[in-house]
Design a protein around this nucleic acid. Structure first.
Length: 640
RNA sequence: GCCCACGUAGCUCAGUCGGUAGAGCAUUUGCAUGGUAAGCAAAAGGUCACCGGUUCAAAUCCGGUCGUGGGCUCCA
């Protein structure tokens, strides 16, 4: 007997040990069968072909239910594999899951796919769709499956079968294409209409660089044409916002081949932007009771042996030998801050001690992972270390969380995702620190988030070996998440360096140490901000806030007086007095996304006015220079 | 690091079959003094990423190096 509970609370019963989902859906009425994609039984997505048993909640999934999209994409990946196997019979199948924005399928082929191959594959897929194919599911014994896939030469599938704990496996058939697959799948190909093969790239089998390199084809699929079009538009929008492109147009920064990959040169405009961000943060740090420190860029290797970095991080460190001594270019700021802490004996009355530094560090990232400002080899962390007593821990986490959110709000981020990474309870031995320390730390982090009332995702087993952490991801203007803030406990370094304080009872005790970065890396943050604002920075951040455009060279002297008045009030202003027509100079200022353009000609010169034009908003009309300065200064202050 | 693609003027890019390079923009110089998104003309500008090989001859073909781009478990 099978019993299901429908969303409206009503129950249905079916005879027998198990029942096919298709039957269940059919029993609910004919129209359901036409519109249903799959179903949810006991909170698991099941397709028409699967059998359910026992009792559980049951919900029919239709196009608009999010899990249906995964089903569509997974099935489209099978269609892709079908096309590939048809065009490239020697291709070996790996895996083909549905992912965030689409799907992929990995193949082992002799030659990587060319863009032309992808076109052929896509049109083969469309050809298949001309005749409707039904998906069907079969349950095979492992032996049968192994015999079959061995005969087909599908080595990757054999490897997968061996890892499946059950005694039986499922295979799905579509036309004459058969694949080892857990499902769920569509009932037929009739739902596959709006899809696109996007790109191909190398990808290791199981993401392991010691394993063979496969060729991955990415694609996406939607139920509605409108959704596909919108998705493709989003991709185009993301490309337009690419900080590498904008960085060049706006003359912010460069990565020079002469110097090497992942090393950033900040041009004047990028530098002023960075300075603005850093100076603002430093002001805030001082307000919040942090002390600014500076530590050397290189230090003897011994320091890094004490910290333990040498043992597990040396592949990522730049090292050098000086007069027979090994030195390390710092990949992290913590040991330096610890040395400063240790310059004297601390009383519990001194704590918490909070050290902050715009600490530039260098890490040897793999060349293939370098990416604009987002993944570099030299970068500046807004790094801070808090040394406190266990009792202070909770308050410090609270304050850090508040600080992070306050800063994010200034940059126009108002949507977040918070992740709390804790131990894997099954692997206690891999963590530094005592279980009760961990309990306290994890509790402090969790209660801080709860106190703020934020939803969060608990990431069990995601904690680093030295302590639990909170990560905050911000959602940018086009909905993409970026990880910025991290607040991490450290039970490792206090022991290694014996960082202590003298408590009330006269005993020396180990401090509790918290690593904390709000923006993460300043380089990366500027990259993210550039994409978030699409290069049109708000006034307070704009490298050039105001450009003065005299209509004719005759009005340059008046322009100059306007310029001087603005600069005197701290506005980043410049004048474009080239012998070009006003339209041409406006166009250039618009392309450079300069927030304000002041057009000054005869009329303005006579009345002491300026004609204000705002980026993207056009002509705002004339006003007194003094009024404009008041407005612009206010706007900078408001960080809007 | 690995797979694939790419690297030509400051920028964006053409360059066919191997025969010593071209456009637009930017720059400089003239002319034009123009009121809200590109005035006109001329000049100048290149170690075709770098190193090596094949060839009478290489931007072009081959090998290597460096750099850039798309990716490298969201798991049958």
């Amino acid at each position: 007997m099978v019993e299901i509970t429908l969303p409206d609370g009503s129950k249905q019963r079916y005879d027998g040990e198990s029942v096919e989902v298709r039957e269940v859906v059919a029993s609910l009425g004919d129209n359901w069968l036409k519109t249903a994609i799959a179903a949810e039984f006991d909170n698991h997505v099941v397709d028409f072909h699967q059998r359910i048993s026992g009792e559980g909640s049951f919900k029919v999934l239709r196009e608009s239910d999010p899990p249906s999209l995964d089903v569509l994409r997974h099935s489209t990946s099978h269609l892709l594999a079908h096309a590939v196997k048809t065009l490239f019979p020697n291709a070996k199948l790996a895996i083909g899951p549905s992912i965030q924005d689409g799907f992929y399928y990995d193949f082992d082929v002799e030659k990587p796919f060319t863009p032309e191959d992808l076109e052929r594959i896509e049109s083969a897929m469309r050809d298949f769709l001309k005749t409707r194919m039904d998906f069907s599911r079969e349950v095979w014994s492992k032996e049968k499956a192994k015999d079959y896939f061995a005969a087909e030469g599908e080595a990757y599938k054999l490897e997968l079968i061996d890892e499946i704990p059950d005694s039986d496996v499922s295979v799905y058939r579509m036309g004459n294409f058969l694949d080892l697959c857990a499902g769920p799948h569509l009932d037929s190909t009739k739902w596959i209409k709006h899809f696109k093969v996007l790109s191909s790239a190398g990808a290791y089998w199981r993401g392991d660089s010691s394993k063979p390199m496969l060729q991955r084809i990415y694609g996406t699929a939607f139920y509605k044409k409108k959704d596909l079009d919108e998705h493709l538009k989003r991709l185009a929008e993301a490309e337009k916002r690419d900080h590498r492109k904008l960085g060049k147009i706006l003359d912010l920064f460069e990565v020079r081949e002469e110097a090497g990959g992942g090393l950033v040169f900040w041009n004047p405009k990028g530098s002023i932007l960075r300075e603005t961000i850093e100076q603002y943060l430093k002001e805030k740090l001082l307000e919040k009771g942090y002390e600014l420190v500076l530590t050397p860029h290189i230090a003897r290797a011994e320091l890094w042996s004490t910290s333990g970095h040498f043992d597990y991080y040396s592949d990522n460190m730049y090292t050098m030998e000086v007069e027979g001594q090994d030195y390390v270019l710092k990949p992290m700021n913590c040991p330096g801050h610890i040395l400063i802490y240790q310059r004297k004996l601390h009383s519990y009355r001194d704590l918490p001690v909070r050290f902050a530094e715009m600490g530039t560090v260098y890490r040897r990232e793999l060349s293939g992972t370098l990416h604009g400002l987002l993944r570099v080899r030299g970068f500046t962390q807004d790094d801070a270390h808090i040394f406190c007593t266990p009792e202070q821990l909770s308050a410090e986490v609270d304050a850090s969380l508040d600080f992070a959110l306050e800063i994010m709000a200034d940059y126009g981020f108002d949507e977040f995702k918070i992740e709390l990474s804790v131990r894997d309870p099954k692997k206690q031995e891999k963590y530094a620190g005592e279980p009760d320390e961990w309990d306290a730390a994890e509790k402090a982090l969790e209660s801080s988030i709860r106190r703020k009332g934020f939803p969060f995702t608990l990431m069990e087993g995601e904690a680093v070996f030295y302590g639990p952490k909170i990560d905050i991801k911000v959602i940018d203007a086009i909905g993409r998440p970026w990880q910025l803030t991290t607040i991490q406990f450290d039970f490792n370094l206090p022991k290694r360096f014996n960082i202590n304080y003298v408590d009330r009872d006269g005993e020396r005790k180990l401090v509790v140490m918290v690593h904390r970065a709000l923006l993460g890396s300043v380089e990366r943050f500027v990259g993210i901000l550039t994409e978030h604002y699409a290069g049109a920075f708000p006034l307070w951040l704009a490298p050039v806030q105001c450009r003065i455009l005299p209509v004719t060279s005759e009005r340059a002297p008046y322009g100059k007086s306007v310029l001087e008045a603005l600069i005197e009030r701290g506005v980043r202003a410049e004048m474009d007095e080239r012998d070009e027509k006003i339209g041409y100079r406006i166009r250039e200022a618009e392309l450079q996304k300069i927030p304000y353009m002041l057009v000054v000609g005869g009329k303005e010169a006579e009345t002491g006015e300026v004609a204000v034009r705002a980026h993207g908003r056009g002509d705002l009309g004339r006003r007194k220079l003094g009024d404009f300065i008041g407005e612009i200064v206010d706007e900078v202050r408001s960080k809007r």
